[in-house]
Amino acid sequence: MSEPLIIRRRLPVGSMGKKANGWWGMLALIATEAALFAYLLFSYFFFDVQYGRGWLPEKLPAFRLSGPNTVILLLSSVAVWWAEREARKGNRARQCLGLAVGLLLGIAFVVIQGFEWADKTFTPFSSSYGSLFFTITGFHMAHVIAGLIVLASLLLWSALGYFDDRRNAPVTIGAIYWHFVDAVWLAVFFSLYVTPHLR
């Protein structure tokens, strides 16, 4: 009789960090969302290649607002990363602070992006470039807003004392989603704002 002895050991119970099924589910969600943005950017470059410079607006997308906004979004990721680290140490106050800072920086991103949109001379209905520009940045904006709802929920749950140093899987799972939203922005930013200047 062979007994897999390994079975006789203490096992964690329930939702435990990266052992939680929710963590794996979030990775699957991120994979499919990443594919969505890949198809969006494919569509953008499909037009770009077919039409060339004439397809882009007269005035290329500028860095005046989008540059600082990119930095703001990256800083929010740092704040959320720090919050997650403090969560694992069981430091609830710092964890809440990190989530709150991440949330505020995210909101700032949305507001500045609103100004950036208002600044455009084209609309989603004026040209195929406009349709794509607003669809891509709009999809990203929708993901930021979803991420803000996630961060707000995590902040609330943290403040209510739902988590401690071991039981905090939702923070880990929410944080990776927020980092993904930021990483996608870098791809969007590079495609829509940087590549037009490289031709």
Binding site: A28, A35, Y39, S128, S131
Partner: peptide
């Protein structure tokens, strides 16, 4: 996971072209 977003996006674009006159 990698294929479905393509068709969801395509149908969204089609619907937007029909509904909002995007291009």
């Amino acid at each position: 996971l990698f294929a479905v977003p393509a068709v969801s996006l395509a149908f969204l674009m089609m619907w937007a072209d029909r509904q909002f006159n995007t291009h």
